[in-house]
């Protein structure tokens, strides 16, 4: 995934079955953000892989005061990349089991 300066990682083991997964997001390179980022550590949240959209979580983070509106693209993309990776790994694992 392209380095957006915002890192998103699994916050728990992915057993490949549960639809909601805990993720952790933090800023590795504040310079890449459009606005001055008051570093408040890593933000952990649960994401429903089936029914939720990464951009919505990014919007909620902004509404909760973690980021500025102008950084919604970078935050949304970072979550999207990680979610895509999780789904890709899950598909690969299913294929291996067949």
């Amino acid at each position: 995934a392209e380095d957006t300066g915002v890192r998103v990682e699994l916050a728990e083991e992915d057993d490949g079955k549960k639809s909601s997964i805990a993720l952790k997001l933090w800023v590795e390179d504040p310079k890449k953000l459009k606005t001055k980022y008051k570093d408040n550590g890593a933000i952990e949240f649960t994401f429903d892989l089936e029914n939720e959209v990464p951009e919505d979580v990014a919007q909620e983070m902004i509404e909760s005061g973690f980021f500025h509106e102008s950084d919604i693209k970078i935050v949304g993309k970072s979550i999207k990349d990680r979610v895509a990776l999780i789904k890709w790994k899950r598909e690969r694992t299913v294929l291996l089991q067949v």
């Binding site: 570093d39 949240f45 509404e63 909760s64």
Partner: peptide, 27 residues
């Protein structure tokens, strides 16, 4: 100080914790 936990109006909980050290070091 920054709240350790923020619950968004839509109900999602955001828990703030220290940024994990670069885990590459201890692998």
């Amino acid at each position: 100080g920054s709240a350790a936990q923020v619950v968004h109006s839509a109900g999602r909980r955001f828990i703030v914790s220290p940024v994990p050290e670069a885990r590459l070091k201890d692998q």
